[in-house]
Design a protein around this nucleic acid. Structure first.
Lengths: 299, 299
DNA sequence: CTACACCATAGACGCCGACTATGCTTGTAT
DNA sequence: ATACAAGCATAGTCGGCGTCTATGGTGTAG
């Protein structure tokens, strides 16, 4: 069966006239005639009664007509659905961010994202790097924002911005008063870190690898906020990504945030998506907005 | 858009594998691949994400999938509807009979019709000849049972049986006692007739045309039953079709039914339908049953 | 009775969808 | 690390279906 035949049939039922139905269907009369006959043949039922001056439906034709109409309407619905949302920058898009980026980056970019990509409905999730990559590969999410590099198998990545690390120290620490802090100055300090699974933990260890800072064995923070509390309590120092020290998250309450002097250690924040993803346009649009926002923020 | 493409799409969504979907659809893998691509192109939307080891739906694909399924299901419904009732001897069939035949013929044939054509749902109507022919031509009914001949424009007819006329006389009439009655014996009698529009009226006038029976001016019966009452009341005599004198409609209650001696006047009862009707098979099946029944009855 | 309206049939043609063969990319195994 | 296997895309070819124009056949109207 063919949708085209159903269209012919409906046109014929509407006009009651082969010639008019053919005209309305933009085909010749013999074409429509033959296709109707073929449809009848296929169904094994006569749909149309060819009366001399008029064409009417048989009982079976009358029963099939509303079904045919519904099918055609649904076919139009599919086309409309696809064509209307044909815009690649519309529809739902599932985005995941790692915990050390999400809460600090989103406030900066969400308003701009909503404004510049108003038809894109972002579904936001928060996963650590490994689960994020798993869900990305499984197709559960479309885009991940995390710290690069990560192993890319079938994935594509785009760097978004460099995020310097800062060091958070208790107010009473000697470091708090230094005008400039170098990585080497952290020698001998107790280093507070996030629990396993957070990439920031590995990045911090990497930054401090060469020096003699010892990690506290007793505490493994579950979030940057608890980590901040621990520093303020004087239990040690920690590295914080710069975005986590902005706005309401800055110094204060027993804690001082110091920027490193050059060479400033940093991490690369980027976007990751499946190479096969159908949402490449939307992904790059989002990346563009984030990049632009971060360039402004740096100024 | 093509239903075939939707079938391919659904198969692909079900299997998540081009090769398997092609196999399930009984086509080669490149064929299915190309048609899916064409469908995506037509809709202007990517439906499928081709991941290396697996095929998944895009968000738009997931939204379209249920619509596609519904369409295919409805297409199957149409086919099932047509194929199941593909039997020409099934479905509704609207049949009209004239008032002087219906009430007397139907009791004789209905049981046999129901038995031999059990899947045919007869919708019965009663109209006088002219309205019956009008409704037949208009397509409101499919089959008419009436007295032939009638003007056949685009109609087809089939004779079913000969129905002799009988004469109904009051018990106290001299005719009631005669062993045989000829048409000429009706000379001088008051002839009671149905009102205008009933063909039986014209047939009776035709039978009695040559003789000197005068029609009663005061009464025009609206049905054979009132006519019978009028005869029993001694107001005159009338012609009755034989079927209207059988079983519960015979002599009695002040009325005697006399058969004519040869040559017996009669009328031809037949079936009429549109030449273009799609229900020729059913019509002829019904005619066959009526014919057979009437042959048995005559014995 | 002739002319017209209207659907069906005939014959030709172009395009779509099908196939086989092969290429390309990715993941896997030795 | 290299070779193989899996899996979808591409290339090239072919047949059939849907389309057209021209014409036939039938019923209606003037």
């Amino acid at each position: 069966m063919n949708l085209r035949d159903l269209r012919y049939f409906v046109a014929l039922a509407d006009t009651g006239h082969f010639g008019k139905a053919a005209e309305r269907s933009f085909v010749s009369q013999p074409t429509l005639s033959a296709q109707i006959k073929k449809l009848e043949n296929y169904l094994g039922v006569q749909l149309i009664e060819r009366q001399p001056r008029r064409v009417t439906l048989t009982e079976m034709g009358a029963r099939i007509l509303p079904l045919a109409r519904r099918m055609l309407q649904e076919s139009d619905e599919i086309v409309a659905l696809a064509r209307n949302e044909h815009d690649p920058l519309s529809g739902k898009l599932k985005v995941a961010l790692i915990p050390t980026i999400g809460p600090y980056l989103l406030p900066l970019v969400m308003r701009k994202l909503r404004k510049q990509l108003p038809r894109l409905k972002l579904m936001l999730y928060e996963y650590q790097t490994q689960p994020l990559l798993d869900k990305l590969r499984a197709g559960d999410i479309e885009l991940g924002i995390l710290a690069l590099p990560v192993p890319l198998d079938g994935l594509e990545a785009r760097e978004l911005y460099q995020e310097p690390f800062t060091v958070a120290v208790p107010n009473n620490s000697p470091l708090a008063k230094k005008s400039s802090v170098k990585v080497d100055d952290l020698g001998g300090e107790t280093l507070l870190l996030l629990e396993d699974g957070h990439c920031l933990r590995d990045q911090a260890l990497d930054v401090c690898g060469r020096i003699e800072a010892r990690e506290s064995e007793d505490y493994r923070a579950t979030s940057l906020e608890t980590l901040r509390q621990m520093v303020a309590a004087g239990l040690g120092v920690t590295l914080l990504p710069e975005l986590a020290t902005r706005g309401p998250f800055g110094s204060g309450q027993g804690l001082t945030v110091k920027h490193f002097s050059r060479p400033v250690p940093s991490r690369t924040v980027g976007a990751v998506w499946r190479k096969s993803s159908a949402r490449g346009d939307a992904v790059h649009a989002i990346c563009g907005v984030i990049e632009a926002t971060m360039k402004e923020v740096k100024k």
